[in-house]
Amino acid sequence: MPITLTRPGRRVVRRQATIWALRLALLLAVLGAWRYANTAGEVSPLILPQLSAVTDSFTQLVGSSHTWQQAGITVLEMLAAFTIAAVGGLLCGFLLSRGPVIARTAEPLLAWGYMFPLALLYPLFLLWVGVGMGSKIAYAAVGAFFPITYNTIRGLRSVDAKYLQVGRAFGASSLQVDFNIKFGAARPMILAGLRIGSSIVTIFVVLAELLGSQKGLGHEIEQASSRLMIADSYATVLLLILITIVLQRVMERLLRAKHE
């Protein structure tokens, strides 16, 4: 049977086409403005390097094994930090949610931990863990730990009483109440915490590499900028953006609830 688009289907396709056309137009406008700034605008190449210089530098970067080594380190730091924060946050959130007193005590502390500008503490992390990968992982893991734990507690403690009543009425064990009811009901909130945590991890790792490190893409950007190799700096930023987009996409795919 031939597949035919229904009316709303066609409209959706047309709208999608418009959106992509507009995105392309926006990109071209940005590139056009860049080109104008390089030529007639006479903007200093120290602020805005030639577009061609950046693309040249980017092709060079992508072709070099050194770049991928650095990128590998950065990605590894991100994944390690996220794993630690997720495991620690879920476990702590679960344990803290079990008593009303302890949960009420912990909630504001965790909220403050989330809002506190942790960057201020980064020098201490360097002192404690050293300039290697450890300090980046520890710093990003701590940053992501707070929203993950906080959302886990809130999710587990705000389960609708009607679901718990079903558990009681059918004689659920406390293990079943935890895993079949509470974690199920709290899942959207916990996933939201994990999503926040994953974006915090990407930001914190790069920030930490910029602030003090000997490896990683953040370090490469810092090096290029301090040597006034602005085109290299731009190219590395571009690569970093592409990598984080891919990582975020994968995370979002993994962290989507089935019934949402």
Partner: peptide, 19 residues
Amino acid sequence: PNPRNAAFVFQDYSLFPWK
């Protein structure tokens, strides 16, 4: 509660949306 003796059906269905 002993659901094998007496089982409940609640007003608001109380189905688990995640199952």
